[in-house]
Nucleic acid binder design. Structure first.
Length: 824
RNA sequence: GCCGAAGUGGCGGAAUGGUAGACGCGCUGGUCUCAAAAACCAGUGGGAGCAAUCCCGUGUCGGUUCGAGUCCGACCUUCGGCACCA
């Protein structure tokens, strides 16, 4: 040991001073300002904007830090990176807080945003705050209204009845979140479902295109969830005759994916909400059916669809005739059939459907086999048979394989005009109406003469009045505001009333990413030139909880806008990575659950860099996990050790003997580390990237103690360490950069490159296995041939011991890894 | 219930089908100190053995393979979503 700088004089840095100093300097230097007309290739990196609940919690930090690290990395890789931030500022929570604390939602929201901006700044992100988007401002939500009108004029927005959660005591509509075990969270009254006329966006028009994920690079699990959510199924709609009742409807139409089983129909089931239920119920069954329908209205869809729950149903007293075999089968009502799926009624084929089988057994309905299993002896089935088989009891189709029967029977149904092939989706149209105050007013007026009339673009925005009563009353809050409601028809000038529902906040988040391209543009939702420059989001990041709804809605918006000629790309988010959820007390952090942990105390205690490092090191970013702060001091130790390496006087090294091998091996590790960190950060594997940097810095400490490298190699190593660390620890890296005499700013430097030759190992450790069990390790040259490797393995003493008395059957060689000797 | 994931030391986790436990926390011992803290050094999956070394071990049960934490099947547990939280 030749050097005199010992670690007894270890210095720790002052993170408070450092953060303030560099934050100010970054702002003065405008290093995070993003210009549209930059010669570098563009990279649009977006993280899902937060809901301004009041406090940024560690879950937000975890998510946003990861996105910031990746965006910083891409910037150093030479891209002009747009990495903006904003707030999803409308929504239920503001209204609830207002009701609870008497603060106006606007005031509550804006002060929360103010606080969260401060917290976000302390994280040291590279946001360009000039591009911030806040959705509750009129210059944002006027474009929600404009989009609504575009969709409306093109047949993609319509009104229809749909059930809402209704609290009969509070006389108000409740969100699902406000219904706890079927009771109103405020007054514990049983919540009922009540139909209201509401606005929908026709997302189902795009169902097939939304199934296509080929233009994007998304995680398979998200694609799978979306595919299942859309739930495309091909089948046949087939009529059953009810003309005997002399109703307007001569037939009822069912949807089935198994038309091959149509000869096995022994009953028909209607959804309890189906309009035909009351018409088809006979007087002696009316009381029972009505009670059943009311009971069903109390249940959630999840409860109704549960396969665990006992199947229930009631007979209407009426029958329908199966046109294929002229059989008269009973019509029942059962809650496992949903009005919103298919035609709202199904044909019951107990022999070949599990649910129908259980149902038929319970209600003693006949079970007739029409698809015979192989080797079927004609006896009754003990459970539903859903595998392929042969058509039996199926009239002219008997003897066909059921796959063929499926097609032939469909042809037969179509030829006779009894029905037709059709495609059904599980996904429903997007219900955007909310009977709430804190949202975007829907720009429609109802004129006494002209009826439903859109507000002209020139009258936008329809301003949300500030002085509305938002306490629960039984009506949409805006309906009570006379100044808002009463207006004149834009077409004829007659007295008219405004639509008083507001929009789902998912409307805001379906296009906010388009707004960041030109957030101050006044002549449209976005400046076509600016959007032309930035285009689709190259890298989108956010919580896996948004896998279906938000991501499908945003995709729908972009496709609809493309078809209306406003956009020229097909998908909003080219690449998607989901960070995992940070849970605390075994649940996702959320203010309403009361389990949030704020980062502020940690930031003040150990500094932003350490909190960032800790979160990125906790585990894989895509996994998330239970929050605890056990290891956070270890990260502070590491950053302090790194700082201590940085401030050493490198010239001391030149006073001792340099070992060329040591220099070479430090260089090798440096290039290996650059490679590892580059590849890991690219793939959002921050935890292993940080581990590699730790190994590198640990090794620097050892090299210094040994005094075997020259100052040049040392300084180069420290310089590269600062560059590699800069996305994760932006403050410390800047301080290191300054300390080693480089010029401002480390964040404007190119990312370091690695040289494969310098990173290559000269010798490797080869594992010797006998029958798959580790028996020895041998050091060999990295370029060893297969024959030599096998020979050396067979010669190894310990391999010999374990193969003694056995015959070597096979020798498997995995280059660079191992030799496995198979012997017995 | 349905859809999608995850399960590895005392803890967080690492591991292109190829050395299980990198990196870090914690713990144990040591250095420094009057002492403590901090920092630094060493050790640290379980079992047997003086040792060399051997056996066991990645939620459970089974399978594929020369070789399985990794692939396949069944199950258990936990988490996310289920259309008005966003």
């Amino acid at each position: 040991m030749a050097t005199t700088a010992s670690h007894s004089s270890r210095m720790s840095y002052d993170h408070h001073d450092m953060q303030t100093r560099w934050s100010d300097r970054w702002e003065e230097g405008g290093i995070y300002t993003v210009e549209d007309d930059d010669p570098r290739p563009k990279w649009y990196e977006l993280h899902m904007y937060p809901y301004p609940s009041g406090d940024l919690h560690v879950g937000h930090w975890f998510a946003m830090t990861g996105a910031d690290v990746h965006a910083r990395f891409m910037r150093m890789k030479g891209y002009n990176v747009l990495h903006p931030m904003g707030f999803d500022a409308f929504g239920l929570n503001a209204e609830n807080a207002a009701i609870k604390n008497g603060i106006h939602p606007h005031k509550w929201t804006m002060s929360n945003i103010e606080n969260m901006r401060r917290q976000l700044r302390s994280m040291g992100p590279m946001y360009d705050w000039d591009r911030e988007v806040v959705t509750c401002t009129p210059d944002y939500y006027r474009w929600n209204q404009w989009f609504f009108l575009q969709l409306y004029k093109n047949g993609l927005a319509y009104r229809s009845d749909a059930p809402v959660n209704w609290c009969p005591s509070c006389q108000t509509v409740l969100a699902n979140e406000q219904v706890v075990n079927g009771l109103c969270e405020r007054c514990d009254t049983s919540v009922v479902h009540r139909d209201m006329e509401q606005w929908f966006f026709k997302i189902t028009d795009y169902a097939d295109e939304l199934l296509d994920h080929s233009k994007m690079d998304w995680p398979d699990r998200i694609n799978a969830m979306q595919t299942n959510w859309i739930g495309r199924s091909e089948g046949v709609e087939v009529d059953f005759d009810i003309s005997e009742y002399g109703l307007e409807e001569k037939a009822i139409r069912t949807f089935t994916t198994r038309i091959d089983t149509v000869y096995g129909v022994t009953f028909i089931v209607l959804a309890p909400e189906h309009p035909l239920v009351s018409k088809l119920t006979t007087s002696e069954h009316r009381e029972e059916v009505q009670a059943y329908v009311e009971e069903a209205r109390l249940q959630t869809e999840i409860e109704r669809l549960s396969t665990e729950k006992e199947k229930t149903g009631v007979f209407t007293g009426s029958f329908a005739v199966n046109k294929l075999n002229d059989e008269r089968v009973p019509i029942l009502v059962a809650d496992y059939v949903l009005l919103s799926y298919g035609t709202g009624m199904v044909m019951g084929v107990p022999a070949h459907d599990e649910r129908d089988f259980v149902f038929a057994q319970k209600y003693n309905l006949p079970i007739r086999t029409v698809i015979a299993p192989p080797d079927w002896d004609g006896s009754d089935l003990e459970e539903a048979y859903i595998e392929p088989g042969t058509q039996v009891n199926s009239g002219q189709f008997d003897g066909m394989p059921n796959a063929e029967g499926l097609e032939r029977i469909a042809d037969f149904v179509e030829a006779n005009g009894w029905g037709e092939r059709s495609v059904n989706y599980r996904m429903r149209d997007w219900l955007i109406s909310r009977q709430r105050y804190w949202g975007t007013p829907i720009p429609i007026v109802f004129c006494e003469k002209c009826g439903e009339t859109p507000v002209p673009d020139s009258d936008l925005p329809v301003l949300l009045p500030e002085d509305a009563e938002f306490l629960p009353t039984g009506d949409s809050p805006l309906a009570l505001h006379e100044g808002f409601v009463n207006t004149t028809c834009p077409d004829c000038g007659s007295p008219a009333k405004r639509e008083t529902d507001t929009m789902d906040t998912f409307v805001d988040s379906s296009w906010y990413f388009l707004r960041y391209a030109s957030p101050h543009f006044e002549d449209g939702p976005f400046d076509p030139d600016a959007l032309g420059q930035w285009g689709a989001v190259d890298q989108y990041t956010g919580g896996v909880e948004h896998a279906v709804m938000h991501l499908l809605y945003a995709r729908f918006f972009v496709k609809a806008l493309r078809d209306l000629g406003y956009l020229n790309f097909d998908e909003p988010f080219v690449r998607l990575v989901n960070q995992g959820t940070i849970v605390f007390n075994h649940q996702k952090m959320s203010k309403s659950r009361g389990n949030v942990i704020a980062p502020d105390a940690y930031v003040s205690d150990v500094g932003s860099d350490v909190v960032r490092t800790y979160m990125m090191f906790m585990g894989p970013w895509e996994a998330g996990g239970e929050w605890n702060d056990d290891g956070i001091n270890g990260m502070a130790r590491w950053t302090n050790r790194v700082w201590d390496l940085t401030i050493r006087d490198a010239s001391l090294l030149d006073q001792s003997d340099t070992h060329p091998d040591a220099v070479k091996s430090l260089q090798r590790l440096q290039h290996q580390t650059i490679k590892k960190v580059t590849e890991d950060v690219e793939r959002f594997k921050f935890n292993t990237a940080i581990a590699a940097m730790m190994e590198f810095s640990n090794s620097l400490g050892q090299v210094w103690d040994a005094g075997v490298v020259d100052s040049e190699a040392w300084t180069d190593a420290v310089r590269n360490l600062a560059l590699l660390m800069s996305p994760v620890t932006p403050f410390l890296a800047e301080e290191m950069w300054d300390q080693i005499g480089e010029s401002f700013s480390v964040h404007q430097q190119p990312w370091p490159e690695w040289d494969p030759d310098l990173a290559a190992d000269e010798t490797i450790t080869l594992v010797v296995q006998v029958n798959g069990r580790l028996r020895d390790r041998i050091d060999v040259p990295a370029n060893i041939s297969e024959e030599d490797a096998k020979a050396r393995a067979l010669e190894s003493d310990r391999a010999k011991t374990h193969t003694e008395g056995k015959e070597v059957r096979r020798v498997i060689y995995v280059p660079g890894r191992l030799v496995n000797i198979v012997a017995n």
